[in-house]
Design a protein around this nucleic acid. Sequence first.
DNA 1: CTTTTAAAAGCGACCGGTCGTCTTTTATTC
DNA 2: GAATAAAAGACGACCGGTCGCTTTTAAAAG
Lengths: 196, 196
Amino acid sequence: MANLKEFKREQILNQGIQLMMMHGYHGTGVKLLLDTVNVPKGSFYSYFESKENFTAEAITHYIEPFITRLQSYLNNSELDGLAAIKTYFESLTQELENSDFKGGCLLGDLMGEIGGVSDVCRQALKTAINQYCTLLEQGLLSAQQQGIVRTDISPATMARLLFDAWQGALLHMKIEQSIIPLQRFTAELLDNYITN
Amino acid sequence: MANLKEFKREQILNQGIQLMMMHGYHGTGVKLLLDTVNVPKGSFYSYFESKENFTAEAITHYIEPFITRLQSYLNNSELDGLAAIKTYFESLTQELENSDFKGGCLLGDLMGEIGGVSDVCRQALKTAINQYCTLLEQGLLSAQQQGIVRTDISPATMARLLFDAWQGALLHMKIEQSIIPLQRFTAELLDNYITN
DNA sequence: CTTTTAAAAGCGACCGGTCGTCTTTTATTC
DNA sequence: GAATAAAAGACGACCGGTCGCTTTTAAAAG
């Protein structure tokens, strides 16, 4: 019973993520979202406190698989720190190409649309980004110790720079409908800039 | 007479830009926008064909002063190509700090929200970005010829990379409410990466 | 130079719908 | 039969867009 509810809850989150990646926060209506997962409109507020809170949860929910995925690459002992990061981003690039550049990144989209307005969502974004960057940091630190990545810049700084540049590349991808911005990110920053 | 209409038109565009930077495309209502500039609702469609078309024009209108501004830095003979670009970005950083990180960049926000949905706006964004990057390119080429910027990467590639990274940094700025991401952009990419 | 008339522009009420939220009713469980 | 949870539907506000009335402007006629 409680499991079914939890399942439905996750369904709403997943569907919300998909819709918001396409149409943004204000462009995604609660009613429409609920219809697609067969949940009555009146039930929404038994799952979530408000649309804003729902979105904050969606952000957290969205980043999870990316964290897991990056982590699994980093834990792969066959890959050094840099190779893990590079493989990770290349797999994302491949996926985006396969899905015809639909969506991009929920974080980037929401940062632009409501990051400056909704405190709740900004906090969720901040936490998500920090988790993500901390993971990148670990990989970069390993790569530094392995002598692959330059040591004159801190992993923390590099991780944030990479994150930002990747977000920008995703936006550019949407506009050009091409993975070239993503490939440029890999070639210039991963292969060139941070490498020893 | 026709001048007054042109003036009003520009007022709507400017106000629309401000509102959209804060609340995005779907978060900005036509009626509310018009009220703030004392234009009757019914008149909107004598100025613009639709909200979508209006937004495309706003994009073009938005980028203009940035183009002019960057151009003036590039034309300043006291500054080499790189110094011009750096000064330009630093002046933007200063401005954003003074305005408490309100808004950020309309291009970035709209790329995320409607770049993948509205063809009209995507085209406007594409053109705007290309103009902007072409200008950056010129500065980078000069700097290359002056021996300040590395020559193993094409100006075109560097310009796009810088643009994307800057957009990402602006998003991050919004979330952190801090100019640190912008300073990181300058320090790591302008001062370090592209420099000889 | 008036006066009359036609065309254009300006404008607010209003269209059908949808928004996020909340209250009320219905169904379920103990 | 009381307590709890779920769903229905209503709420006022607002959405982008349109329609036709009113005012203004310009041209034509006297």
